[in-house]
Design a protein around this nucleic acid. Structure first.
Lengths: 200, 200
DNA sequence: AGGGTAGTGTGAACAGTGTCAAGAAACGGA
DNA sequence: TCCGTTTCTTGACACTGTTCACACTACCCT
């Protein structure tokens, strides 16, 4: 440990794990997930193509760690949006927060649902995604015992989840017009009306 | 034209374009879109890796043609599901049809929304996707003048679209349990209740 | 009927990818 | 000080999509 060297440059690279996550996040955000390349991430971090394997094992491992982080952020955003007196406005605010989260960083949001690229059995990923759903479920069913999403009691929560998730993915895929600007516009102009058709 | 030869073996291969589309559809369905490989498709069709370029130009061209076909099929399924007297059951049946279409062939459904892999400007693709939305919009707004999705008048249609699209993508990504069986189960057991929360 | 031409395929090549096996360098603790 | 472990590099392998030059076939036109 270089106690009196530069603070975050302890080892060969310093904190390569964090640097790789940051490079990957930036790459995904600017070029999309389908342009993701482990070698390009390593290149941006200034290391050799095989270096990431020691920290993540696999490209899948890196992406899973990134997705887990994204789910933690989503959970935070939903809990922030869920503070209100009546459940109705809480649900509405959470819906806005959900779509806002997706539109703010489309690459990150898209990654979270590319299950073919992720390791769903990863504990951190599993816990983070579970917590995000729990945050969405709480304003609907209150603090009742947490139930898995396939429980019929969760139907109203799943209705909320489905409508905002569908709106977000459709918007990001250009269904309401090409480009990110159209998605943002749709979220401003028609998302409130869309949420009004939901009666939980 | 080999007028009296075997019927579908007119040229070197016969109808390579159709064969490639079929191979690609099969590959995507059995291994997922992320495992798509143009070389593998050519291999299955028994031709060299460069052969597809004459028919589709690009991997993107092939996938776009496949997605256009999928959108045509979706439009057909929605129009079949939209025959009923009152609009309410028409909407409900279309929702079931939409999710059923997605679950029946997850690979095909996933491809339709991977805009990064497709050429959205392709005329056939554009027309087919437009028609599918039109089919979804008709039970809601009747035979009023067709409006683009970003028109505020389409808000109720977009609410329907969002909720079924979100449900389908969540189910296929394992949000309601792992594997395709869980998705099918969720569609049977909780989709009707979810659709009940929509008041258009 | 015959020749030119457009259409349709092959094969080799190039740059780029993920991953693995060895080995070298730097660090931590004995 | 020296040993062991962690971290990273190098080189290799099997892939991928795409392009190029070339060959062959089927059709159209004269």
């Amino acid at each position: 440990m270089s106690r009196n060297g530069p603070p975050d440059r302890a080892y060969h690279h310093g904190d390569l794990r964090a640097a790789l996550l940051a490079s990957a996040a930036a790459l995904i955000e600017e070029r999309g997930i389908d342009a993701f390349s482990l070698r390009e991430v390593a290149r941006r971090a200034g290391v050799s193509p095989a270096a990431p394997s020691h920290h993540f094992g696999d490209a899948r491992g890196l992406l899973t760690a990134l997705a887990a982080q994204a789910f933690r952020d989503l959970g935070d955003a939903l809990e922030e949006g869920g503070v209100a007196d009546d459940p109705e406005t809480r649900i509405r605010r959470q819906g806005i927060a959900y779509v806002g989260f997706a539109i703010a960083r489309p690459g990150r949001f898209g990654l979270m649902w590319r299950s073919a690229l992720l390791d769903a059995a990863d504990p951190a990923f599993d816990q983070a995604s579970r917590r995000a759903f729990r945050a969405l479920d709480r304003p609907v069913r209150g603090d009742a015992d947490p139930a898995p999403p396939h429980d019929p009691a969760c139907a109203p929560s799943i209705a909320c989840w489905s409508i905002v998730h569908g709106f977000a993915t459709l918007a990001l895929n250009g269904a309401f017009g090409p480009g990110p600007e159209a998605a943002r516009l749709a979220a401003m102009q028609i998302l409130p009306a869309v949420l009004g058709y939901l009666e939980v």
